[in-house]
Design a protein around this nucleic acid. Structure first.
Length: 924
RNA sequence: GGGCAAUUAGCUCAGCUGGUUAGAGCGCCACAUUGACAUUGUGGAGGUCACUGGUUCGAGUCCAGUAUUGCCCACCA
C-alpha cells in the first residue's frame, strides 16, 4: 500500500535513473515511423548554477517533449552548455584575482589561462548536468553538446570562411564599443544605459558656444557643426575656418553644416569627436573629416591632450574644466544634468567607443541566394532573410506581438562586430603572412583620416582557412593566427544544427560543410527543429542570430515556432537578483522542499508566453498539495481494488463492461473524454497554463470531490483504474515523477513506463454518457443545496436530517441516486416525490426542475429562515427584471441571434418559476 | 523621443473569436477529525472589471482618449 503522503525525495532520482537507463529519452526508443519533433535546449552558460530562468525553460520544454513523445513522435531534446566567452573568462579572472593573482592574463599567458578556464568549465558543466536532471528534463544525454567542442569549432570555421568568401564578413576600421575594463569590443546588444547626473558645461569656442558633459574628449575638436537652415548662423559658410583659443592653445576650426545638428538643442552648435562617438563618426565620414584618437584603450588621455596626457578620463575632467575656466572660456555650468552613459553588460565598465580594426558581418549586402515568393532564387541580404522568414510565417513567434519588436530590431541593425579581444572562445580562423603583406607594401598603420573602410578583401597577407595552417600557401612563409576570438553568439547562432552534425564527419577535413550536413543522419532527420523555447529577453541576442546564421549556412530555418517565456519575478514584482538573496528563490531548494513536480506546475500555471510572472513559496506549496492529492486519490483507488480483491495491473486497457456502469461512471467517462480533447488541443496550441488549470480542476474538483466520493458507495474498479490511468497520462508532461511512480501501481501488466506510454485518445463518447454527465450534475446540485441549507440553518454537522425533494423531471434519477444523496448530505430521512407539495417549517432551495426542502422540525430559527428567503427573493427579482427588460427591448429580440433570444427566454422562465416558489414559501 | 504590455476579490492571476447572476488559488470567516488525503473536507463573505467617451440589441471582452505602472528600443552633442 502507498504511503500516506507523497515523498518526492524517495522517488525522483530513482525514477530519473530508471528512465535514463532504459534509454527513454532517445528518439530511437520512440515509434520509428513517427514524425520527428525536435527541441534544441538553450544551453545554460557553463559558469555556475541553475536558476529559475533555466528551471522555467526546462519545465516548458520538457512538457513539449513529453507530450509529443507520448503522441508517437520521434522526440529529440538536445541538451548542452555554452562556453559563454566573455562571461566565463571574466568569472574565472575574477576568481583568480580573488585568490591573489594580480593580473591573471599577464601572469598565466594565453595557453595556461585557457586551460584554467576549461577546467573550471568542466566542473560547471557537471553541476549544470545534475541540476538539469533534477528538474526531470527528458533530454537525450547521449547527444549532449557544448558550444566550444571541436565539432562545433569546425562548423564555426566553415561558416566563417563561407561568409568571408561570400563577402559577408569583412575586416575594417569601424567604430566599436570598447570595454576598457574587459579590454575587448562588445556588440551593440551587450551594452546597457545607466542614468547619471553630471555637470554640464558650456564653453566659448571662437564665436560659438558649445556644451558638453565630457570636456576631456574635446582636445581634438576642430570642427563646429550647425544645421544648414539655422538662421542664427547664416553668416558662417560651410567649410570656412577660423582660429580660436582652446584647451592647449590656439586651434584652427572648420565650420560644417549638417542636418544632424539639432537647432532646437542648446545653442544649436556642437563640436565633434569622431573617434569616440558613433554619431560623430558617421558625420565625419559624410564630410571626409579627420578623426583623431583622444583616449587610449585603457581609458587614459593620449599625447594630444598635452599636459593631461596619461591621465584617466575621470581625473582629467575637472582639471580640463579648471583650465578652461582660468582662460575665461567657461560660460556656464549646469549641475545635475541627467544623461545616459553606456555600460558594459558583463564587466560594468564604461563603454568608450573607439575606432578599431575589427571583423564584421555585413548585414546589408545582397548576396545570399534565397527563395522568392513565386520565382526562383534571388540574392538577398541577411537582414532581408531575417525579415522574410518571419514576415512570411515560415517561423511563428508566440506571442505574436514580438514580431513587431523583432522587425524594429532588424531595421536598426548595424553590421555586427564579431571579433573579441579575449582568449576564451573560438579563435578567428584567419592567418597573417607578414612576408606577403610586406611585399605588397601594405601596412596596418592607420593614417589620420584615411582609414581603410572598404571590405577588406584586398588586404594582402590574410589567409582565411577553416583548417589550421602554419605556412603561407602563397610564399611558404610562416604565418600567425589572428589573436582574436569570435563573439560567443557567433557559435551559439548555429546551435540548432551544429549540434546535429555527426562529429565523426567534422573530424574529416576533406569534407565540405554541405557534405557534412548531407551525411549527418541526425541533421537530416531532426532539422529544422520544431520549437525554440527561450526567454523574450534573448530574442535579439540569440533567436535573431540563429535565424540569420542558420538560414544562411544551411538554407533551412532553424525552427518552426518560437515560444518566448517571460521572466520570473518576486512576489511584489521585483527582479530576482543575486545581490539581494532575500528575493532569490533557488530552484534546487524548492525541489528539495516540495518536489520537482510542484515546482514545475508553480512556474507553468498562471504564466503566459511573453509575460513576466511572479513566484513565491506559497504558490509552490499549493501545487505540492495538488501533487499529494493525486497521490491520495490513487491511494484510494488502490484501496478500493484491494478490498475487492482486484489486482489493478490485471485490468487491461479498454475492456470496460458497458452494462454495469452507474450514472457516475458514465459521467466520468464522458468527463475524461472531454478532458482528453481539451488537454490535447491546448497542448497543440501551446496553451500550457490553461491546460494545467484544466487538469488541476478536473482532478480535484471533479474526480476527487465527486467521482471518488460517489464511488465510496459502489466502486467500479475498472472505471476507477481507467480514469486514474488516463489522468496520469494526461498529467505526465506536467508532473512526470509522481505520475510515473503511480503508473507503476496501476498500469496494466506489460505496459511500458509512463514516459513511453501512448497519449490517450478520446473515443466517440456514447450519447448516454453525455446524458449521464448532465444527470450527475443534477445530483451534485441537489447534494450541494442540501449542504448549503444545513450550513445556512446552522444544523449540527453530524446531525441526520429529514429532506424532501420534489422533481417531476428527475424523480426517477434522484431515486436511483438515493444512497449517495443520503450519505453525502447526511440525510436521515429522504423523501423523493415527483409531485410538489406544501411544507411547513422547512428551509427550501429551488433549483432547475428540483425543489429541496430541509425540515426544520425541532431545530429551526424562523427569523433566519425568513431573512435568507428575502435575500434570495431580492436577488431573483433583480435578475428577473433585468431579463424582462432585455426581452422587452424590441431591438434585442429583432437583432440578436435566435439562439441567444431563446436562451434568454428559457432563463427568464426558470428564474420566474424559482421566484414564484420563493414567494409562496415566504407567504406561509 | 519611439514602441510594447499591464490595470479584474486583501494578494497572485484566469476570463479564447463580445451573449448565464464575472471565475480560480492563497488569505479571511464559520463548521467538521475513527474509514484516500489537515499537504483535508463542507459552507460562506469579498469585485460599480483604472477612468472617460464611442461602436453594438448587448462591452471585463472591440475602438478612441486619459491616468498609473512595468518593459524594450533610440541616445541630444
Amino acid at each position: 500500500m502507498l504511503d500516506k503522503a507523497y515523498d518526492p525525495k524517495s522517488c525522483e532520482d530513482r525514477i530519473y535513473k530508471m528512465w535514463e537507463d532504459a534509454g527513454a529519452f532517445k528518439p530511437e526508443s520512440c515509434n520509428p515511423k513517427g514524425e520527428p519533433f525536435t527541441i534544441s535546449m538553450p544551453p545554460p552558460n557553463a559558469t555556475g548554477q541553475l536558476h529559475l530562468g533555466h528551471a522555467v525553460m526546462l519545465a516548458l520544454e520538457d512538457i513539449f517533449i513529453r507530450f509529443n513523445r507520448m503522441c508517437g513522435k520521434r522526440a529529440l531534446w538536445v541538451p548542452g552548455t555554452d562556453h559563454a566567452a566573455i562571461a566565463t573568462e571574466s568569472v574565472v579572472i575574477k576568481k583568480l584575482k580573488q585568490e591573489g593573482m594580480a593580473d591573471p592574463r599577464k601572469q598565466l599567458g594565453r595557453e595556461k589561462l585557457v586551460t584554467k578556464i576549461a577546467e573550471f568549465v568542466e566542473q560547471s558543466k557537471a553541476t549544470i548536468r545534475s541540476q538539469v536532471r533534477k528538474m526531470g528534463s527528458s533530454c537525450d544525454w547521449s547527444r549532449e553538446r557544448y558550444t566550444f567542442e571541436p565539432s562545433l569549432n569546425r562548423c564555426v570555421n566553415e561558416v566563417f570562411c563561407k561568409m568571408k568568401n561570400d563577402g559577408l564578413i569583412y575586416r575594417g576600421h569601424r567604430i566599436v564599443n570598447w570595454d576598457p575594463k574587459l579590454q575587448t569590443t562588445v556588440s551593440d546588444d551587450e551594452i546597457e544605459y545607466q542614468e547619471r547626473r553630471d555637470p554640464y558645461y558650456t564653453f566659448q569656442y571662437g564665436p560659438f558656444q558649445i556644451s558638453t558633459a565630457r570636456p576631456e574628449t574635446k582636445f581634438g575638436d576642430k570642427y563646429v557643426v550647425m544645421h544648414p537652415d539655422d538662421k542664427r548662423y547664416k553668416k558662417y559658410k560651410h567649410g570656412e575656418t577660423f582660429e580660436c583659443e582652446w584647451i592647449n592653445g590656439k586651434v584652427r576650426a572648420t565650420v560644417i553644416k549638417d542636418p544632424a545638428s539639432d537647432p532646437t538643442f542648446g545653442t544649436g552648435v556642437m563640436t565633434i569627436t569622431p573617434w569616440h562617438d558613433h554619431i560623430d563618426f558617421a558625420l565625419a565620414e559624410r564630410h571626409g573629416l579627420e578623426k583623431e584618437q583622444i583616449i587610449d584603450f585603457d581609458g587614459r588621455l593620449l599625447p594630444v591632450a598635452g599636459e593631461f596626457a596619461g591621465l584617466p578620463i575621470e581625473k582629467a575632467r575637472p582639471m580640463v574644466v579648471e583650465k578652461l575656466k582660468e582662460k575665461g572660456l567657461l560660460v556656464s555650468v549646469k549641475e545635475d544634468y541627467v544623461h545616459n552613459v553606456a555600460v558594459s553588460q558583463r564587466g560594468h565598465g564604461m563603454i568608450e567607443p573607439q575606432i578599431k580594426l575589427q571583423w564584421f558581418i555585413d548585414v546589408n549586402k545582397e548576396v545570399v541566394p534565397w527563395k522568392q515568393d513565386s520565382a526562383g532564387l534571388l540574392p538577398r541580404s541577411l537582414k532581408q532573410i531575417m525579415h522574410s522568414v518571419i514576415h512570411h510565417g515560415d517561423i511563428k513567434i508566440i506571442p505574436e506581438r514580438f514580431n513587431k519588436t523583432y522587425f524594429h530590431w532588424i531595421d536598426n541593425l548595424r553590421d555586427w562586430c564579431i571579433s573579441r579581444q579575449i582568449w576564451w572562445g573560438h579563435r578567428i580562423p584567419v592567418f597573417y603572412c607578414p612576408k606577403c603583406a610586406a611585399d605588397k607594401g601594405e601596412s596596418e598603420k592607420i593614417e589620420k583620416g584615411k582609414l581603410k573602410m572598404e571590405n577588406d578583401g584586398s588586404t594582402s597577407g590574410i589567409i582565411v582557412s577553416a583548417k589550421a595552417i602554419d605556412t603561407c600557401p602563397h610564399c611558404g612563409g610562416k604565418v600567425e593566427q589572428d589573436q582574436d576570438t569570435l563573439d560567443t553568439w557567433f557559435s551559439s547562432a548555429m546551435w540548432t544544427w551544429s549540434t546535429l552534425v555527426d562529429s565523426k564527419l567534422t573530424g574529416d577535413p576533406s569534407l565540405s560543410l554541405e557534405e557534412i550536413l548531407k551525411r549527418s543522419p541526425d541533421f537530416q532527420s531532426f532539422h529544422p527543429t520544431s520549437v525554440m523555447e527561450t526567454g523574450y529577453d534573448i530574442l535579439f541576442f540569440w533567436v535573431a542570430r540563429m535565424i540569420l546564421m542558420t538560414t544562411y549556412a544551411t538554407g533551412q530555418i532553424p525552427f518552426k515556432t518560437v515560444y518566448l517565456h517571460g521572466l520570473i519575478r518576486t512576489r511584489d514584482g521585483r527582479k530576482m537578483s543575486k545581490s539581494d538573496p532575500e528575493t532569490m528563490i533557488d530552484p534546487l531548494d524548492m525541489i528539495a522542499k516540495y518536489g520537482a513536480d510542484a515546482l514545475r506546475l508553480s512556474m507553468i500555471v498562471g504564466q503566459s508566453p511573453g509575460n513576466d510572472s511572479r513566484l513565491y513559496e506559497e504558490k509552490i506549496a499549493g501545487y505540492r498539495n495538488f501533487i499529494n492529492k493525486i497521490w491520495n486519490a490513487s491511494r484510494f483507488v488502490l484501496m478500493q481494488c484491494e478490498q475487492k480483491g482486484i489486482d489493478p495491473r490485471k485490468i487491461e486497457n479498454g475492456t470496460l463492461k458497458m452494462e454495469n456502469l452507474s450514472i457516475a461512471d458514465q459521467a466520468l467517462l464522458c468527463g475524461i473524454d472531454r478532458l482528453i480533447v481539451d488537454v490535447t488541443k491546448g497542448l497543440e496550441e501551446y496553451r500550457l497554463s490553461d491546460v494545467g488549470d484544466r487538469l488541476y480542476s478536473f482532478v480535484w474538483d471533479f474526480f476527487c470531490d465527486w467521482y471518488l466520493e460517489l464511488s465510496k458507495g459502489e466502486a467500479n474498479c475498472a472505471v476507477l483504474i481507467h480514469g486514474l490511468r488516463t489522468i496520469l497520462q494526461l498529467l505526465h508532461p506536467y508532473c512526470p515523477y509522481v505520475t510515473e511512480e503511480l503508473w507503476a501501481q496501476v498500469a496494466a501488466d506489460g505496459s511500458p513506463s509512463l514516459i513511453s506510454a501512448p497519449w490517450p485518445k478520446a473515443g466517440k463518447t456514447p450519447k448516454e454518457f453525455v446524458q449521464a454527465f448532465d444527470q450527475l450534475q443534477v445530483v451534485i446540485d441537489a447534494i450541494s443545496s442540501i449542504r448549503r441549507l444545513r450550513a445556512e440553518q446552522q444544523v449540527e454537522a453530524g446531525k441526520k436530517i429529514t429532506v424532501t425533494i420534489h422533481s417531476k423531471k428527475h424523480a426517477k434519477l434522484l431515486e436511483s441516486q438515493r444512497s449517495h444523496i443520503e450519505r453525502m448530505g447526511h440525510v436521515g430521512t429522504l423523501v423523493i416525490d415527483a409531485k410538489p407539495a406544501k411544507h411547513e417549517k422547512v428551509a427550501s432551495a429551488f433549483l432547475k426542475d428540483v425543489e429541496v426542502h430541509l425540515s426544520l422540525e425541532g431545530l429551526f430559527d424562523v427569523g433566519k429562515l425568513k431573512a435568507s428567503l428575502e435575500k434570495e427573493q431580492a436577488e431573483l427579482s433583480r435578475y428577473v427584471q433585468g431579463l424582462q427588460g432585455k426581452l422587452k427591448n424590441k431591438s434585442f429580440v429583432d437583432r440578436a441571434p435566435k439562439e441567444v433570444v431563446t436562451a434568454e427566454k428559457a432563463k427568464l422562465a426558470e428564474a420566474e418559476a424559482k421566484l414564484k416558489k420563493v414567494e409562496e414559501t415566504l407567504l406561509r
